[in-house]
Amino acid sequence: MNPAELTQTALASPAVEVSVWALFWQASFVVKLVMLGLLGASIWCWAIIVDKVIAFRRAKTSMDRFEKVFWSGQSLEELYRSLTTRSNEGLAAVFVAAMREWKRSHEAGRISFHGITDRIEKVIDVTISREMERLEGRLVFLATVGSAGPFIGLFGTVWGIMSSFQAIAASKNTNLAVVAPSISEALLATAMGLAAAIPAVLAYNKLSTDAAKLGSRMDGFADEFAAILSRQIDDRS
Protein backbone atom coordinates (compact mmCIF):
# COMPACT_ATOMS: atom_id res chain seq x y z
CA MET A 1 0.00 0.00 0.00
CA ASN A 2 1.62 3.21 -1.07
CA PRO A 3 1.57 6.26 1.16
CA ALA A 4 -1.07 8.03 -0.88
CA GLU A 5 -3.52 5.20 -0.45
CA LEU A 6 -2.66 4.95 3.19
CA THR A 7 -3.45 8.55 3.92
CA GLN A 8 -6.56 8.35 1.84
CA THR A 9 -7.99 5.43 3.72
CA ALA A 10 -6.87 6.89 7.02
CA LEU A 11 -8.62 10.08 6.14
CA ALA A 12 -11.66 8.48 4.66
CA SER A 13 -12.55 6.04 7.42
CA PRO A 14 -12.94 8.43 10.36
CA ALA A 15 -15.06 10.76 8.31
CA VAL A 16 -17.74 8.10 7.96
CA GLU A 17 -19.41 8.16 11.36
CA VAL A 18 -18.86 10.20 14.45
CA SER A 19 -22.15 9.57 16.22
CA VAL A 20 -22.15 8.55 19.87
CA TRP A 21 -23.12 5.04 18.93
CA ALA A 22 -20.36 4.77 16.38
CA LEU A 23 -17.87 6.10 18.88
CA PHE A 24 -18.92 3.41 21.32
CA TRP A 25 -18.51 0.64 18.80
CA GLN A 26 -15.13 1.91 17.67
CA ALA A 27 -13.81 2.00 21.22
CA SER A 28 -11.35 -0.54 22.42
CA PHE A 29 -12.36 -3.42 24.64
CA VAL A 30 -11.33 -1.85 27.95
CA VAL A 31 -13.00 1.41 27.17
CA LYS A 32 -16.11 -0.44 26.11
CA LEU A 33 -16.08 -2.32 29.39
CA VAL A 34 -15.69 0.88 31.36
CA MET A 35 -18.50 2.50 29.48
CA LEU A 36 -20.77 -0.48 29.94
CA GLY A 37 -19.96 -0.56 33.65
CA LEU A 38 -20.71 3.10 33.96
CA LEU A 39 -23.93 2.63 32.08
CA GLY A 40 -24.93 -0.15 34.46
CA ALA A 41 -23.96 1.98 37.46
CA SER A 42 -26.02 4.80 36.13
CA ILE A 43 -29.01 2.53 35.62
CA TRP A 44 -28.66 1.11 39.10
CA CYS A 45 -28.25 4.56 40.58
CA TRP A 46 -31.41 5.77 38.99
CA ALA A 47 -33.21 2.63 40.05
CA ILE A 48 -32.17 3.31 43.64
CA ILE A 49 -33.10 6.96 43.35
CA VAL A 50 -36.56 6.19 42.04
CA ASP A 51 -37.05 3.47 44.59
CA LYS A 52 -35.93 5.63 47.49
CA VAL A 53 -37.97 8.61 46.45
CA ILE A 54 -41.05 6.41 46.30
CA ALA A 55 -40.20 4.67 49.57
CA PHE A 56 -39.53 7.90 51.44
CA ARG A 57 -42.71 9.44 50.21
CA ARG A 58 -44.69 6.40 51.25
CA ALA A 59 -42.98 6.29 54.62
CA LYS A 60 -43.74 9.90 55.21
CA THR A 61 -47.41 9.57 54.36
CA SER A 62 -47.75 6.48 56.49
CA MET A 63 -46.11 8.28 59.39
CA ASP A 64 -48.49 11.16 58.97
CA ARG A 65 -51.44 8.86 58.90
CA PHE A 66 -50.29 6.87 61.93
CA GLU A 67 -49.60 9.94 64.01
CA LYS A 68 -53.02 11.22 63.13
CA VAL A 69 -54.62 7.99 64.33
CA PHE A 70 -52.34 7.70 67.32
CA TRP A 71 -53.17 11.15 68.66
CA SER A 72 -56.85 10.86 67.81
CA GLY A 73 -57.63 9.46 71.26
CA GLN A 74 -58.28 5.97 69.97
CA SER A 75 -57.57 3.18 72.40
CA LEU A 76 -54.04 1.92 72.03
CA GLU A 77 -55.26 -1.63 72.44
CA GLU A 78 -57.57 -1.31 69.47
CA LEU A 79 -54.90 0.34 67.44
CA TYR A 80 -52.47 -2.40 68.26
CA ARG A 81 -54.97 -5.05 67.36
CA SER A 82 -55.71 -3.45 64.03
CA LEU A 83 -52.03 -3.04 63.22
CA THR A 84 -50.81 -6.49 64.14
CA THR A 85 -52.77 -8.03 61.35
CA ARG A 86 -50.48 -6.52 58.70
CA SER A 87 -46.85 -5.72 58.21
CA ASN A 88 -45.86 -2.34 59.49
CA GLU A 89 -43.10 0.08 58.88
CA GLY A 90 -41.97 3.36 60.32
CA LEU A 91 -43.81 4.64 63.32
CA ALA A 92 -46.36 1.83 63.20
CA ALA A 93 -43.58 -0.71 63.46
CA VAL A 94 -42.11 1.07 66.45
CA PHE A 95 -45.52 1.24 68.10
CA VAL A 96 -46.29 -2.37 67.43
CA ALA A 97 -42.92 -3.53 68.74
CA ALA A 98 -43.29 -1.52 71.92
CA MET A 99 -46.89 -2.64 72.46
CA ARG A 100 -45.90 -6.24 71.89
CA GLU A 101 -43.24 -6.05 74.55
CA TRP A 102 -45.72 -4.37 76.86
CA LYS A 103 -48.32 -7.05 76.25
CA ARG A 104 -45.85 -9.83 76.84
CA SER A 105 -44.98 -8.38 80.21
CA HIS A 106 -48.67 -8.45 81.09
CA GLU A 107 -49.90 -11.63 79.45
CA ALA A 108 -47.66 -13.83 81.48
CA GLY A 109 -49.99 -13.19 84.36
CA ARG A 110 -47.24 -12.14 86.51
CA ILE A 111 -46.91 -8.44 86.28
CA SER A 112 -43.24 -7.70 86.49
CA PHE A 113 -42.71 -3.98 86.31
CA HIS A 114 -39.12 -4.38 87.09
CA GLY A 115 -37.05 -3.73 84.01
CA ILE A 116 -40.02 -3.26 81.69
CA THR A 117 -38.99 0.26 80.79
CA ASP A 118 -35.56 -0.90 79.82
CA ARG A 119 -36.89 -3.68 77.72
CA ILE A 120 -39.35 -1.48 75.90
CA GLU A 121 -36.70 1.08 75.12
CA LYS A 122 -34.38 -1.60 73.84
CA VAL A 123 -37.08 -2.97 71.57
CA ILE A 124 -37.85 0.50 70.30
CA ASP A 125 -34.17 1.18 69.56
CA VAL A 126 -33.83 -2.05 67.69
CA THR A 127 -36.92 -1.37 65.66
CA ILE A 128 -35.82 2.15 64.80
CA SER A 129 -32.39 1.05 63.74
CA ARG A 130 -33.93 -1.68 61.59
CA GLU A 131 -36.27 0.82 59.99
CA MET A 132 -33.43 3.25 59.40
CA GLU A 133 -31.37 0.55 57.84
CA ARG A 134 -34.21 -0.20 55.50
CA LEU A 135 -34.58 3.47 54.59
CA GLU A 136 -30.92 4.17 54.10
CA GLY A 137 -30.00 0.91 52.47
CA ARG A 138 -28.38 1.25 49.02
CA LEU A 139 -27.82 4.94 49.50
CA VAL A 140 -24.20 3.99 49.97
CA PHE A 141 -24.13 2.84 46.40
CA LEU A 142 -25.09 6.34 45.29
CA ALA A 143 -22.27 7.77 47.32
CA THR A 144 -19.84 5.30 45.83
CA VAL A 145 -20.87 6.00 42.28
CA GLY A 146 -20.79 9.73 42.98
CA SER A 147 -17.21 9.65 44.13
CA ALA A 148 -15.79 6.86 42.00
CA GLY A 149 -17.70 7.43 38.76
CA PRO A 150 -15.50 10.23 37.46
CA PHE A 151 -12.41 8.20 38.24
CA ILE A 152 -13.72 5.21 36.40
CA GLY A 153 -14.62 7.37 33.43
CA LEU A 154 -11.21 8.98 33.58
CA PHE A 155 -9.62 5.58 33.52
CA GLY A 156 -11.52 4.78 30.36
CA THR A 157 -10.40 8.05 28.82
CA VAL A 158 -6.79 7.58 29.70
CA TRP A 159 -6.88 4.08 28.35
CA GLY A 160 -8.58 5.19 25.16
CA ILE A 161 -6.13 8.01 24.57
CA MET A 162 -3.26 5.74 25.30
CA SER A 163 -4.40 3.20 22.77
CA SER A 164 -5.16 5.93 20.24
CA PHE A 165 -1.65 7.26 20.60
CA GLN A 166 -0.37 3.80 20.07
CA ALA A 167 -2.43 3.68 16.90
CA ILE A 168 -0.98 7.00 15.81
CA ALA A 169 2.50 5.75 16.40
CA ALA A 170 1.72 2.67 14.39
CA SER A 171 0.14 4.50 11.47
CA LYS A 172 2.74 7.30 11.56
CA ASN A 173 0.08 9.76 10.65
CA THR A 174 -0.65 12.62 12.98
CA ASN A 175 -3.36 14.17 10.89
CA LEU A 176 -5.95 15.59 13.24
CA ALA A 177 -8.66 13.86 11.29
CA VAL A 178 -7.05 10.58 12.21
CA VAL A 179 -6.45 11.42 15.82
CA ALA A 180 -9.74 13.09 16.59
CA PRO A 181 -12.18 10.14 16.55
CA SER A 182 -10.23 7.99 18.95
CA ILE A 183 -9.72 10.86 21.36
CA SER A 184 -13.38 11.72 21.09
CA GLU A 185 -14.33 8.15 21.85
CA ALA A 186 -12.00 8.12 24.81
CA LEU A 187 -13.52 11.29 26.15
CA LEU A 188 -16.93 9.67 25.88
CA ALA A 189 -15.93 7.46 28.81
CA THR A 190 -15.34 10.45 31.06
CA ALA A 191 -18.59 11.96 29.88
CA MET A 192 -20.45 8.83 30.91
CA GLY A 193 -18.66 8.74 34.25
CA LEU A 194 -19.74 12.28 34.95
CA ALA A 195 -23.24 11.59 33.72
CA ALA A 196 -23.53 8.73 36.21
CA ALA A 197 -21.78 10.49 39.08
CA ILE A 198 -23.48 13.85 39.08
CA PRO A 199 -27.06 12.61 39.65
CA ALA A 200 -25.74 10.09 42.14
CA VAL A 201 -24.08 12.76 44.24
CA LEU A 202 -27.07 15.04 44.13
CA ALA A 203 -29.49 12.25 44.94
CA TYR A 204 -27.32 10.93 47.71
CA ASN A 205 -27.24 14.26 49.46
CA LYS A 206 -30.96 14.74 49.09
CA LEU A 207 -31.93 11.19 50.10
CA SER A 208 -29.60 10.92 53.04
CA THR A 209 -30.97 14.18 54.39
CA ASP A 210 -34.52 12.88 53.96
CA ALA A 211 -33.62 9.64 55.69
CA ALA A 212 -32.09 11.52 58.59
CA LYS A 213 -35.28 13.54 58.89
CA LEU A 214 -37.41 10.40 58.98
CA GLY A 215 -35.08 8.87 61.52
CA SER A 216 -35.27 11.84 63.82
CA ARG A 217 -39.01 11.82 63.48
CA MET A 218 -39.10 8.18 64.57
CA ASP A 219 -36.78 8.97 67.43
CA GLY A 220 -39.09 11.69 68.61
CA PHE A 221 -42.13 9.44 68.44
CA ALA A 222 -40.29 6.67 70.20
CA ASP A 223 -39.36 8.98 73.06
CA GLU A 224 -42.92 10.21 73.38
CA PHE A 225 -44.36 6.70 73.32
CA ALA A 226 -41.80 5.49 75.81
CA ALA A 227 -42.81 8.33 78.09
CA ILE A 228 -46.46 7.35 77.80
CA LEU A 229 -45.76 3.73 78.59
CA SER A 230 -43.51 4.69 81.48
CA ARG A 231 -46.31 6.80 82.90
CA GLN A 232 -48.71 3.86 82.57
CA ILE A 233 -46.26 1.63 84.34
CA ASP A 234 -45.87 4.08 87.14
CA ASP A 235 -49.63 4.41 87.44
CA ARG A 236 -50.15 0.71 87.70
CA SER A 237 -47.38 0.03 90.09
Partner: peptide, 24 residues
Protein backbone atom coordinates in the same frame (compact mmCIF):
# COMPACT_ATOMS: atom_id res chain seq x y z
CA UNK B 1 -40.44 -0.40 40.02
CA UNK B 2 -37.38 1.72 40.49
CA UNK B 3 -35.22 -0.60 38.44
CA UNK B 4 -37.61 -0.83 35.56
CA UNK B 5 -38.12 2.90 35.53
CA UNK B 6 -34.41 3.46 35.51
CA UNK B 7 -33.80 0.98 32.71
CA UNK B 8 -36.59 2.42 30.68
CA UNK B 9 -35.35 5.95 31.25
CA UNK B 10 -31.84 5.04 30.21
CA UNK B 11 -33.04 3.22 27.16
CA UNK B 12 -35.12 6.20 26.23
CA UNK B 13 -32.19 8.54 26.80
CA UNK B 14 -29.88 6.48 24.63
CA UNK B 15 -32.48 6.22 21.93
CA UNK B 16 -33.00 9.92 22.02
CA UNK B 17 -29.27 10.39 21.84
CA UNK B 18 -29.04 8.17 18.81
CA UNK B 19 -31.76 10.03 17.05
CA UNK B 20 -31.26 13.58 18.16
CA UNK B 21 -27.48 13.52 18.25
CA UNK B 22 -26.72 11.35 15.28
CA UNK B 23 -23.39 12.96 14.65
CA UNK B 24 -21.58 16.11 15.36
Amino acid sequence: AGFTTSVLAHAALLLWGLIALPSA
